[in-house]
Simulated scan of single mutants.
Amino acid sequence: MTSYDLLISCASWEERSEKSILFHQEKNQFDWLLLFGVEEFSHLYGKTYFDKEKLINGEIQYISSFDDVATWKRIQNLFDENNIYQKNVLFDVSTMPRYLIWYLLHFLVSKTNQITYCYFSPEKYEECDWLTEEPMSPRLVLKHSGIHLPNRNTILVVQSGFDTERVSQLINVYEPEKVILGVQTGEQLNNVSKNLKRHKEILNYQEIEHFPINAFGKDHGYSAIEEKVLQYKESKNIIMASFGPKLVAIEMFKINQKIPEAGLVDVPVRNYNQRYSLGINLDSLQKGSIES
């Protein structure tokens, strides 16, 4: 059993949210639980059964999916009010939106916390025709938006999942010179064949380059993405986006720390397919650390 000062997680309609917290309560020791929720989707959340005794302020801390500044200030206030500074933190990103992952990492790192991150895969994915609907305008991440020069073309470095709607939205808005699409290796759920087939069928864009990436490998895809960023950073504007396993979102944050010219972008949506993922695979636990 490992001891932490704080567990940070995010409520969701997915079973992984509740079951991952129950797992941590059984397997780890922590003093406090900081549990976020997204206001616009809170009506989808079910009843929770985990022990709420350690919940900060005794309740879920709701943020907005559509108001970046309000969310940023909300997180900043929570960190200040609860003295989240130089703590030993377990950061579970299994059901956390990527913009929230990046915002929280910003404050966790800037306040020199010791960060252990973790991720559980679902037990299975349903065969669905869609994952998200009504993608909104892409949003560069506050404080991590990169450096964009007017005399340079843009390259998108995208970790693909099965969510082509948001990739298409990025292409429509940024009109990049090239899209560099990272495709999950291995044949878990026919990842490669399903990903490539879906993107080729739906994305009407010629300049797409594919490269292999393994979110579940030793470095969670860091070296594969860094190689592409380094290839173009001296000549192109680079924007990174994550739409697959969320471990890669963390590695993109690390790359942005090292190479701040490469920005982070998120594409909010108004609707999610709640049947897309089912259950939790407790044997799939992946962990890593971030130095502050």
Results as ranks from 00 to 15, higher is better:
residue 157 V to Q: 05
residue 213 I to V: 15
residue 24 H to F: 15
residue 122 P to R: 07
residue 10 C to S: 12
residue 100 L to N: 04
residue 238 I to A: 09
residue 21 I to D: 09
residue 188 Q to P: 03
residue 202 I to Y: 01
residue 209 E to H: 02
residue 71 T to L: 01
residue 84 I to D: 10
residue 147 I to G: 04
residue 147 I to E: 05
residue 189 L to S: 05
residue 193 S to Y: 06
residue 269 V to P: 08
residue 133 E to Y: 13
residue 60 I to Y: 04
residue 228 K to R: 10
residue 143 K to P: 01
residue 115 I to S: 05
residue 67 D to F: 07
residue 239 I to H: 14
residue 266 D to E: 15
residue 284 S to E: 06
residue 143 K to I: 04
residue 243 F to K: 07
residue 266 D to M: 03
residue 150 P to S: 13
residue 258 K to S: 09
residue 17 S to Q: 07
residue 135 P to T: 11
residue 208 I to T: 03
residue 252 M to H: 06
residue 138 P to D: 14
residue 22 L to S: 08
residue 125 Y to V: 02
residue 239 I to G: 06
residue 87 K to L: 08
residue 210 H to W: 00
residue 21 I to Q: 13
residue 291 E to D: 12
residue 243 F to S: 08
residue 82 N to T: 03
residue 160 S to C: 03
residue 3 S to N: 09
residue 142 L to N: 06
residue 199 H to L: 03
residue 147 I to W: 00
residue 1 M to D: 08
residue 241 A to G: 08
residue 268 P to W: 11
residue 164 T to R: 00
residue 187 E to F: 03
residue 105 L to N: 04
residue 155 I to M: 10
residue 98 R to N: 15
residue 46 G to S: 00
residue 165 E to A: 13
residue 118 C to G: 02
residue 159 Q to W: 00
residue 175 E to V: 15
residue 7 L to Q: 03
residue 48 T to P: 06
residue 12 S to Q: 10
residue 239 I to L: 15
residue 191 N to Q: 01
residue 64 S to V: 04
residue 43 H to Y: 12
residue 231 Q to D: 11
residue 6 L to V: 05
residue 183 V to D: 01
residue 1 M to W: 04
residue 191 N to T: 07
residue 180 I to T: 06
residue 110 S to P: 02
residue 147 I to L: 01
residue 262 A to C: 07
residue 285 L to Y: 05
residue 250 I to Y: 04
residue 67 D to A: 12
residue 169 Q to T: 15
residue 60 I to D: 05
residue 225 I to K: 00
residue 198 R to F: 01
residue 102 W to V: 01
residue 148 H to W: 06
residue 38 V to N: 14
residue 124 K to W: 12
residue 273 N to S: 11
residue 63 I to G: 09
residue 235 S to Y: 04
residue 223 S to E: 14
residue 114 Q to D: 13
residue 153 N to A: 14
residue 226 E to H: 14
residue 37 G to K: 07
residue 55 L to K: 11
residue 107 F to R: 02
residue 21 I to A: 10
residue 4 Y to R: 04
residue 112 T to S: 10
residue 176 P to M: 09
residue 183 V to A: 06
residue 180 I to K: 07
residue 107 F to H: 06
residue 278 L to T: 13
residue 20 S to H: 04
residue 259 I to S: 15
residue 220 H to K: 15
residue 236 K to Q: 15
residue 215 A to P: 08
residue 277 S to V: 07
residue 67 D to K: 15
residue 91 F to W: 04
residue 146 G to C: 09
residue 155 I to R: 15
residue 30 F to D: 05
residue 213 I to K: 11
residue 173 V to M: 14
residue 292 S to P: 11
residue 7 L to W: 01
residue 224 A to G: 06
residue 224 A to Y: 10
